[in-house]
Amino acid sequence: MDVMLWVVLPYVTFAVLVAGSVWRYRYDRFGWTTRSSQLHESKLLRLGSPLFHLGLLVVILGHVAGLVVPATWTAAIGIPEEVYHLVAALAGAAASAVLVLGLLILIYRRRVTSAVFLATTVMDKVMYAMLALSVLSGAWATAATQLVTEHGYDYRQTISPWFRSLWYLQPQPELMAGVPAAFQVHVVAAMLLFALWPFTRLVHAFSAPVGYLFRPYVVYRSRDAGGSGAAPGGSGARRPRPGWEPSAGPRKRS
């Protein structure tokens, strides 16, 4: 069971995430969008969406700091464990409170605004369930283990090394065996969410428009820049589909 959850599942998730995203990008660039519903409802969105997204960005930074950076590194640059814990717990709690609040506003909006609810697909609903599960279990894990006791649960001795061991390709599932249930639920939910990611509207996160900062305002593009499906040789005809190449016609009389 441990191997299943903490070795097989992460690798399967990673494979699905990467392969799924590549497949989706190649097959369905047209469907690759935020599918924003701001046109239908703006007031709640203007409150909930920034709360959710900005909270999420802070939470992601926190995960990077907690999972990727080993405890020995922070100790090496002179940050004592107590200080790290205090900062991580407080910042994490604050960010997750903002995140949860934003998420609740967005879910409420989606359910109550009838135009928005009608535009919600089955996939959206599954995605929202998994997203809510990951976010709420993560917030719960922070609140229940980090805020109640003085030292909190030191995930940097168990979860973080396990996470890094996956990347070294030397997975250590035994590290996850004794982890509090709240964290276990959170990790599994997050993995399921990542596996679902390429098939939902969440893919818009991969196309964060950073390039906008570095390009000239007005974009010119030539008609033949796209280039897909064009026949070589400059005629207007489209490239024939495989197996449908025309036979050589009779030679033109000059």
Partner: peptide, 10 residues
């Protein structure tokens, strides 16, 4: 357009 998806045809 942040994505650069809109363009003026040359």
């Amino acid at each position: 357009c942040p994505s650069g998806a809109m363009y003026k045809r040359a």
